[in-house]
């Protein structure tokens, strides 16, 4: 659900006055109450989590929990695994989606509905049902395919060091976000005119894609990549049920022994999400002001 709102701007209309509500007092009170309650509800858990992590039984205040994150067993391994999976997922999802989106805009608009459906289904189907299907395939696969080369493949994709099966699953989960982000990015530039101009100047199709379209889509691609990364760094269901030790699964595993550390990591990961999304929205803003 990582959909950043499109920046909703209210154009100031010269000459018309800002509409003033007839009774200015009542709505203001009502609004204040709503905002105050929201602030309490949303801020208290954040503050409390932080307090929880720095509260030491004897000294009163200590940042040890944050220090322990880095020394805790499995931290580096699981974080690196998640980052690696994220990088692989980003590359594959962009390689699959970008040509398809461009093609649908330029030459094969009849395929758009198909693409829309394919890129909506992963949103409708809950991830846990997806993993139920995947684990069944992985369980049955070896029985039926024992004598074929596919057997080796099935074993290879489950390598705990770098589980390719997770990359494949994450690509499916990331498709809707990548598709939407790239499609919106293409919508903002006039691909047809751009590519026709380039073709007119003698460029080949791969050249058009790499030298003309991709550079103009940089921020849409950055957006798709950020969303994918955020998704992979937070994904728990599939990794846990296929028994791979990714970062979120690691947080869950250590919670029993180190409650404070696991909360500290949670605060930490919220900060990371925040930074990713800020980077994303400022990249979007830069594109808007640039174009």
């Amino acid at each position: 659900m990582a959909s950043l709102t499109p920046q909703v701007t209210t154009p100031a209309v010269p000459g018309t006055a800002p509409a003033r509500p007839g009774r200015p007092r009542r709505p203001r009170v009502w609004r204040g109450v709503v905002l105050l309650l929201a602030a309490v509800y949303f801020l208290v858990p954040l503050i409390a989590s932080f307090v929880f992590t720095v509260k030491a039984p004897d000294q009163g205040f200590s940042l040890d929990a944050y220090g322990e994150i880095f020394s805790a067993e499995g931290f580096a391994g699981s974080l690196l695994l998640s980052l690696g999976l994220g990088a692989a997922t980003i590359v594959i999802v962009l390689l699959l989606t970008l040509p398809a989106v461009v093609a649908v805009r330029l030459g094969a608009p009849r395929w758009r509905p198909v693409l829309e459906v394919v890129c909506t289904l992963p949103l409708v189907v809950p991830p846990i049902t997806f993993v139920a299907g995947i684990s069944t395939v992985l369980r049955w696969g070896p029985d039926y395919l024992a004598s074929t080369p596919f057997y080796q493949t099935i074993i290879a994709v489950q390598d705990p060091g770098f589980p390719i099966v997770l990359v494949l699953a994450y690509v499916v989960l990331a498709l809707p976000f990548a598709y939407r982000s790239l499609d919106a990015g293409l919508g903002a530039i006039d691909v047809r005119t751009l590519s026709e101009a380039a073709r007119n100047l003698g460029a080949s199709w791969p050249h058009v894609l790499l030298r003309v379209i991709v550079p103009n889509m940089r921020s849409a691609m950055a957006g798709a990549s950020f969303l994918t990364l955020a998704l992979v760094l937070g994904e728990f269901t599939i990794a846990r049920l296929l028994s791979f030790q990714t970062f979120p699964v690691w947080i869950y595993t250590i919670s029993g022994a180190h409650a404070q550390v696991s909360v500290a990591v949670s605060v930490f990961s919220l900060l990371i999400t925040w930074l990713l999304l800020l980077a994303l929205s400022s990249a979007g803003a830069r594109q808007r002001s640039g174009s």
Binding site: M1, A2, P45, P248, S255, S262, S266, V267, L270
Partner: peptide
């Protein structure tokens, strides 16, 4: 935008804390 993405395990731990 941030909080809508704040799900999963970290959210549970924040509330447990």
């Amino acid at each position: 935008g941030v909080l809508a993405n704040f799900g999963g395990v970290p959210l549970a731990f924040a509330w447990i804390a």
